[in-house]
Design a protein around this nucleic acid. Structure first.
Length: 664
RNA sequence: GCCCGAGUAGCUCAGCUGGCAGAGCAACGCACUCGUAAUGCGUAGGUCAGGGGUUCGACUCCCCUCUCGGGCUCCA
């Protein structure tokens, strides 16, 4: 029998029999690889394992635990979900079902506009397990579009995809007039096949897929149902989306579920209540937080630190009102571009409309424009803790992370075109340094470019985008380009951080603006004695203080570092007769500038320690007979070992170092 | 705004098909005086989110509103 030669990823070559498939190749390399194989990458293209190899092919076997392997497993599981739903809900039809981070979803429409009940998920899951047990093969095919239209005649969303295959990335096909399908022939024909001329389940799909439903699938869980607009368009019908998670092994699935529990434990809304930091009174309104004394203290510490750092970095502090006339937002363009996000105006002074401000920029423009500026003043950096109000749609409000009223650490930097590059570079360095001070050290930037809806000159946009790109490259952090994601007036860099459990949060934003200077007719007089337009950089370092506080709580699971902890040391007397000593120790610690509290000995020591631990106090200090005699404490540090007989002076030294270093 | 779900004491949650509102923790009081994550006893605490309806009777069933959660859309 003839043989062919293929090249493996390490550059070596291997000989297999003519007609061998990718799976045959994996088998010939080793049984373990064959077992773990999900799909193959052949000449750079992902294909099913059943694909026949040709002489000279470059072949890489994609295994289950790889990113692409998991992607395929999730994608195949989505098909199984769709089959199960079509089996259990006669007359149901379906939209699209791609893999997503950690899992997959599929969109359905039930007959008569019915919706899934949460209990349906169990039935669907059970049916999916039956399908998996049947080991139905995934059979790839390419059909003329006309034939596909007949098969999918009862599935209008699929017909729409056939007519315009390119809009569903999962269903694409290279050849015009042809569509690719994957079919799962059932063990025995279904009683009420949902497709014309096919015994079982078939779907439009680009593939590739696992070889059959019994291979690599099964470690999944359906998570929730949700409404989702067809093609993500608010004006289109709303479908019923089922989300699931899927993994290559039981252990990986369990680990994922455990991570979700861990995330729930860190929920800042839960911690806000438990640690008595803030809440959202319904009487105030959705998305409008009030800060309790402890939460207020943390915020004040963050603000104080931020003020000090901005002062050092050459910012000037300004204050502006919370409401302004419609005319201001007409000039800034907000009423044209952002009206949806603004609270409605109040009518004052015989019909004059005043809006709560959704952003601080227009006010800062007025400060710049208050008098003639010289190039000698630039860069001029205006800074404000500016509280803004945005009318977020009711369904999007989410604790402190998406509020309707929040305070930005906002600033606007006015500079010359020549200064722009340097300013952006130092600004980004400043931003990263402050974020590091809060314990974030993994960053990713997103460069968002010109959107469809934009104002200004495209050349200016290109220029600004180039400058931003230079700055982010100089900062040496990884970045991706988000095409068309910029604000209407400016391209921007958003800085994302990874938190302690690997979640990604968007914090800082830097925007280069060539519009406001025109709109507000802002100028400076250059060395040439001519008037010029300044460049404007908008930037919010934390984005919003409220949001940053929420992210910090999730990052630290509420265990704020000592420099931010509302109480740094809780002093517990062993017996009542040590209470006086405990109070004196607290006075002494306070005199040293620390935040310390004492707890009376009216409960057993263990109970009081537990309480202090639940409050996530960095240092629980126990004082008893020995400590009174020797001027020592027993230190029970958060996340560390108890240390007895520690001289108070040593403790003070250590705590000071811990605070000054911003130790986590 | 839309889809699904939820709202019972400060917190976490019970309360079956309609028939007098419950627990643990927290709070308060008393006792206990203890060396590293829950001492005991007692007291108080509720317009069952709000409003309307059905019913002899509603925490329970129906409608509206508010708030929250998960998604969609949006997110300057």
């Amino acid at each position: 029998m003839a043989e062919i030669r293929v090249t493996l990823p390490d550059g070596s070559t291997r000989t297999v029999e003519q007609g061998a498939t990718a799976l045959d190749l994996a088998r010939s390399i080793g049984p373990r690889l064959a077992r773990d194989a999900v799909i193959a990458e052949i000449n750079g293209e992902e294909r099913d394992l059943a694909t026949e190899l040709h002489d000279g092919d470059r072949v890489a076997i994609v295994t289950a635990d790889s990113e692409r392997g998991l992607y395929t497993i999730r994608h195949s599981t989505a098909h199984v979900l769709a089959q199960a739903v079509l089996d259990l809900f006669p007359g149901a039809t379906f939209g699209i079902g791609p893999p997503v981070e950690d899992g997959f979803y599929y969109d359905f429409e039930l007959p008569g506009g019915a919706t899934f009940e949460p209990e349906d998920l169990e039935r669907i899951e059970a049916r999916m397990r039956e399908i998996i047990a049947e080991r139905q093969p995934f059979v790839r095919d390419e059909l003329p579009a006309d034939e596909a239209r007949k098969i999918f005649a009862d599935h209008p969303y699929k017909l729409e995809i056939i007519d315009d295959a390119s809009t569903d990335p999962m269903s694409g096909t290279g050849d015009r007039g042809e569509v690719r399908t994957y079919e799962n022939p059932p063990a025995k024909p279904k009683e009420h096949p949902p497709f014309h001329g096919r015994p079982g389940f078939i779907d439009l799909c680009r593939g590739p897929h696992v070889p059959d439903t019994g291979t690599h699938l099964g470690h999944f869980k359906l998570m929730r149902v949700a409404g989702a607009y067809w093609r993500g368009d608010e004006t289109k019908p709303q479908l019923q989306r089922i989300y699931g998670t899927a993994w290559h092994s039981r252990a990986a699935l369990e680990e994922h579920l455990h991570r979700l529990e861990e995330a729930a434990r860190r929920d800042h809304r839960k911690l806000g209540v438990e640690l008595d930091l803030f809440h959202f009174p319904p009487l105030v309104g959705s998305g409008l937080p009030v800060y309790h004394p402890k939460g207020g203290l943390v915020r004040k510490l963050m603000e104080d630190y931020s003020r000090a750092e901005h002062e050092r970095a050459g910012y000037q502090f300004v204050y502006t009102p919370h409401i302004a006339k419609a005319d201001l937002f007409a000039i800034s363009g907000h009423l044209d571009w952002y009206a949806e996000g603004m609270y409605p105006p109040m009518e004052l002074d015989e019909g004059q409309a005043y809006y709560p401000k959704p952003m601080n920029c227009p006010m800062h423009m007025l400060i710049y424009g208050a008098r003639q500026r010289s190039y000698r003043e630039l860069p001029l950096r205006l800074f404000e803790f500016g509280t803004v109000y945005r009318y977020e749609k009711s369904g999007v409000v989410h604790g402190l992370l998406r509020a309707r009223g929040f305070t930005q650490d906002d600033s606007h930097i006015f500079c010359t075109k020549e200064q722009l590059g340097d300013e952006l570079e130092s600004l980004l360095a400043f931003v990263l340094r402050l974020l590091r001070d809060y314990g974030f050290d993994e960053f990713e930037a997103e460069l968002a470019t010109r959107p469809d809806k934009f104002v200004g000159d495209p050349d200016d946009w290109d220029d600004a985008e180039a400058q931003l790109r230079r700055a982010v490259e100089a900062a040496g952090i990884p970045y991706v380009v988000a095409e068309g994601e910029g604000a209407f007036y400016a391209p921007k860099i958003d800085v994302h951080v990874r938190d302690a459990i690997g979640r990604r949060w968007q914090l800082s934003t830097l925007q280069v603006d060539f519009q406001f200077a025109d709109r507000f007719d802002l100028t400076y007089v250059g060395p040439d004695n001519q008037r010029h337009r300044p460049c404007i950089i908008h930037r919010a370092l934390f984005g919003s203080f409220d949001r940053f506080f929420g992210v910090l709580l999730e990052h630290t699971a509420g265990a704020l570092p000592a420099w931010l902890a509302p109480v740094q040391a809780q002093v517990l007397p062993v017996r009542s007769d040590h209470e006086e000593h405990a109070r004196r120790l607290v006075e002494r610690l306070r005199a040293e500038g620390f935040r310390a509290e004492a707890t009376d000995a009216d409960e057993p020591l263990g109970a009081r320690i537990r309480r202090a631990k639940l409050d996530k106090v960095p240092h629980v200090l126990v004082v008893g007979d020995d400590d009174v005699a020797n001027d020592t404490v027993g230190d029970n540090p958060r996340g560390g070992e108890v240390e007895r007989d520690l001289p108070v002076a040593t403790f003070i030294e250590r705590l000071r170092a811990e605070i000054e270093s911003h130790a986590p």
